[in-house]
């Protein structure tokens, strides 16, 4: 009668549930997207719409906007689960919490960052980026945004028990975002000046794999701590 649950089952159940929840609240999916677009819109308004200037700083603008959008949405990663008690449910399973945490982060990335990937080319065109550079931008976003979610997860878990975690979250997270921002924007810079980008991209891949293997551990530890 007793049927045990496999790790793979649990892993996919966590992702599926979060996707289903996102679907139930689909009106909220637009929020990070709208934020991303609006931040980008502010730059030409502040700097003036000179084409050569915009073209040069477009990758930086898009990346900073993606970073801020990720920071804004990451706050919700564990909040609802913490408030309604499902976090306890997730801890009290036979499976390692860090793996389930990874599933949560992947779900969150699919919900909040993947839509940005689709709209980023459009933004690039509005800022007069060239088509092949937009391709590089997409690649860096694809490799970089999961890292942002993974690192952000640690800080969210650490500030979960705090009532006013918002500003603190930004202070904790942004310094840790620096390397990925540097590698991503320098990859695009290299592409724009006609240099090889494979070095930058392999660096980003390395960081991504490092983040996938390492970040769930402190996140899980911090989550358990927040339940005390």
């Amino acid at each position: 009668m007793k049927k045990t649950s496999s790790l793979l089952n649990a892993f996919s159940a966590v992702i599926k549930r979060d996707l289903l929840l996102a679907y139930r609240f689909r009106a909220e999916l637009i929020n990070p997207l709208a934020f991303f677009v609006m931040v980008i819109t502010l730059f030409p308004l502040a700097l003036g719409a000179e084409i050569t200037l915009l073209k040069r700083i477009a990758p930086a603008i898009i990346w900073v906007a993606a970073l801020l959008a990720s920071l804004m949405s990451i706050e919700n990663l564990f909040r609802a689960d913490y408030d309604d008690g499902s976090l306890e449910l997730m801890v009290m399973t036979p499976h390692p919490l860090s793996i389930l945490v990874l599933a949560k982060v992947i779900g969150h990335w699919l919900i909040s960052s993947v839509p940005l990937l689709f709209i980023a080319p459009l933004m690039g065109m509005m800022l007069h980026m060239e088509t092949d550079i937009i391709g590089v931008l997409m690649l860096t976003l694809l490799l970089g945004t999961p890292v942002l979610s993974l690192i952000g997860g640690i800080a969210v878990a650490l500030t979960l028990g705090l009532r006013k975690g918002g500003a603190l979250l930004a202070i904790l997270v942004l310094p840790l975002y620096v390397p990925i921002l540097i590698f991503a924007s320098s990859a695009i810079d290299a592409a724009m000046t006609g240099f090889a980008i494979s070095g930058h991209l392999s660096m980003m891949c390395a960081i991504l794999f490092l983040a996938i293997t390492l970040t769930p551990l402190p996140t899980a530890a911090a989550l358990k701590m927040s339940l005390s």
Binding site: L176, P179, T215, P218
Partner: peptide
Amino acid sequence: RAVAILALVGVVNIPIIHYSV
């Protein structure tokens, strides 16, 4: 304990940050 976790995360990150900068 929270600070210890953060400091350990930071210590892993410092070389990466330093190198990237």
